[in-house]
Write a protein that binds this DNA or RNA. Sequence first.
DNA 1: TTAGAGTTGATTTT
DNA 2: AAAATCAACTCTAA
Length: 574
Amino acid sequence: MGNEATTSIVWFRKGLRIHDNPALSEALIDAKNFGGGDESKKVLPLFILDPWFCNEKSVGANRMNFLLQSLTNLNENLGSLLSIENVNDANNCLTVVQGKPKDVLPNVIKKFNVSSVYFEKEQVEPFGKQRDEEIIEMCKKLNVDVNTYASHTLYDQEFLLSKASAKGIPPSTMGAFQKVLANVGEPPSPVPEPPKNSLRVIPNAGDALSKEFKYANGIPTLEDLGYKAKSLSFKGGKGGETEGLRRMRGALCRGGDGYKYVQEFDKPQSSPCQLFAKEKGSGKALNPFEMAKKASSSSSPKEESLLWPSTTALSPHLKFGTVSVRQFYFELQDILKNELKGKHTNPPTSLMGQILWREFYYVNACGTPNYDKMVGNRICKQIKWKHDPENLAKWENAQTGFPWIDAAMTQLKEEGWMHHLARHAVACFLTRGDLFISWEEGARVFDRDLVDADWALNNGNWMWLSASSFFYQYFRVYGPHSFAKKYDKEGAYVKHFLPVLKDMPSKYVYEPWTAPLEVQKKAGCIVGVDYPKPMVDHAIASKQCMAWMNEAYAAGKEKKSGGEEKSNKKAKTK
DNA sequence: TTAGAGTTGATTTT
DNA sequence: AAAATCAACTCTAA
């Protein structure tokens, strides 16, 4: 009995893909080598739905739906790797169990004589880091090998941090970060995709666990997870690696031959008001990587056409790892170098720049304790934000009375997505621009409702927009009725998400309270009755906020210079 | 110590 | 369309 073949677990959390997945690849390589090649180890691909996050209060329906779609697709794609003997298990190669990892894993380990566990390292998020530490400790006690890999970001974040400074202080500006990158060189290349016939699974593994844990014999539905049926209307396509790679390559080929979209991508110029729409020819062309692979790949004939906003909307795929950021990086790099020969926009505003921003926020999240809070956060300005649940609720529920802000918050609620600049506008409004409510409150709402909610990026961007860190020009305030005008003069975006304003003349659509009563009547939208009055006078509120920001900065400076004086004296006495 | 830079402001002037 | 002005932030590099 002691000599019988043992099992490896590949524990999926993010990284829901079979391409560039070092944990999966290494597990399969190791399984094949086991027993001198005669007898191969079995591999159990496992996903654990933790009730901690599997609820509507923590994760909105749009994101949970995207996750379930991603799991469904992961199951399919794992099926393509199955060994011949597992031909009947194609519908069930990913085991999905509901429970706490610290309860589920020891159980699985004992049941299936598991000798090793493989997973992608969580390097940043406190909850995941602690979870992993506990699991690693548990595995040690059970004498189970643990193999982890940094594959969610371009670089191993600990490595990047060690290269940033001797003390492990992350770079606080993009310029400094790019210098670090220039010194470390290219990120690791994607690992080769595992070959067909390389995965030997345990048939119906989940059934053996179904007594102790909730196991759906397949991928659960939203209803199974207790989600009340809600309109699911994320427009950026289905979850899963197949759709993710299609979208990535569609983005790289946007604008037809000549790679115009990639060539001219310039983030600040992209419109936050552009609705998701079909694009002529996009997603049809093949990029060079695809061309090379074409012989072996077969795409389904009935593919749904991709819908595009002004940006790529690839963020949910990068969040869940259904697209490897390294794969994206190298395919983009190939086009920039070989197709465009260096004639293109550049970081930080280019498409490559967007990948670098992601990495920038990750390294900062990794090197900053209490990164998701103001108190105890080394890089965060200490500001006396107002506690105002009523105003917070108005913002959250799209009742501010500023159509552009309310339309964006409606898009968030309904679709689970907003353009980056719309996020800027609503974040500025909530914090330093108008309401002076803490960025932590806003971050909580985004973290629940965004399909692409990513801990490192979300908290970092909220600090940026509230002028708490990274960005400090607090006197540059987005106008809640002026900013969107330069992108969308007619107010089509606002009218789409707030149909009550659909007949309001464009002249007044961003400031309906300025329309004469006759015009409001004619448009069927009386301000104060059919649509709220503006909750603040922006001119007054923003001036007040600036004064408070000024105070907060001055108080912080005093504290700091006090400390510096001391150390100066110390230096002098020396 | 200081000049210059910083992915994405608004408004007015040229 | 581009530049100047508003009032003036912090970080980096010299």
